[in-house]
């Protein structure tokens, strides 16, 4: 099977500071790939390169088969993105948000209408369609934000600490949505600080000081380091870090 994310020695440096150093990994279609690392380990830099937001210093990467140097426009068409901040417009209604994001992804008006009905139904938000996003509870905003990131049926969705500041029950529900998305063949690339979430991933990589120190299934990693939880694996690796923030 062809990987949807292929990174080969992907490097980004700012002057003499190497933020991401020779990252090499593959992510398979339909996989949930956890991208872990302490603050300042280089996660965000790596993610920005994969999203086509910043041009790598060296190395190669293909996202959904498109080159990160020359085909950023194609990449953008094929990925979705959601960050901790939920990225919805608080002063627009649920419907208007969906319409706007559908619009900037170039969906046609009938497509947007169809998508809106689908999403509202799936999220059981039909009643709230004309409410301002501001008035929704946090958990709903988060789900809506995730669905909006998928409005253009991307192959891959990048989630940057999507569950920051959310209670455990809502987090659990959010992961149900993630599983549902992968069941439809979408690949999920997720960064998180919660180690219980790391356990939900098919495979995780742990970045320390710009380098990927470990990459495997959570069960294999636990075995390798001879510990019971991902929390301990992360701790063993991350404490070696020399740089912070």
């Amino acid at each position: 099977m062809q990987a949807v994310i292929e990174a080969r020695e992907l490097t980004k440096s700012f002057g003499s500071f190497i933020a991401a150093n020779k990252l090499t990994f593959d992510v398979m279609p339909g996989e949930i790939f956890g991208f872990l690392g302490a603050n300042g380990a280089g996660k965000t830099t790596a993610m920005r390169m994969l999203c086509g937001l910043s041009i790598p210093t060296s190395g190669e990467a293909r996202i959904a088969g498109f080159d990160v140097y020359t085909q950023t426009e194609k990449i953008k068409q094929n990925i979705g993105y959601m960050s901790q901040k939920f990225s919805l417009y608080e002063d627009l209604t649920v419907k208007e948000n969906i319409r706007f994001y559908g619009g900037i992804y170039g969906l046609k008006i009938p497509q947007i209408k169809k998508k809106t009905d689908e999403l509202l139904h799936e999220l059981q938000l039909t009643q709230e369609a004309d409410k301002l996003v501001r008035e929704l509870p946090l958990g709903w905003k988060q789900k809506l934000s995730f669905s909006v990131a998928l409005v253009h049926d991307p192959k891959i969705v990048f989630l940057d600490e999507p569950t920051g500041g959310v209670d455990p029950i809502t987090r659990r529900q959010f992961w149900d949505l993630i599983y549902y998305a992968t069941s439809k063949g979408i690949t999920v690339f997720v960064t998180t600080h919660y180690m219980d979430e790391a356990e939900y991933c098919n495979r995780v990589s742990i970045m320390v000081d710009g380098v990927i120190e470990a990459l495997d299934k959570p069960s294999v990693l636990k075995q390798k380091f001879n510990v019971d939880s991902m929390e301990e694996v992360f701790y063993l690796l991350a404490r070696k870090a020399k740089r912070s923030e």
Binding site: C51, K76, I79, Q84, I104, A149
Partner: peptide, 13 residues
């Protein structure tokens, strides 16, 4: 500030 700029930049817009 809202974080929506990031989304716009990741989009093909």
């Amino acid at each position: 500030e809202m974080g929506t700029m990031e989304i716009l930049l990741v989009s093909p817009f």
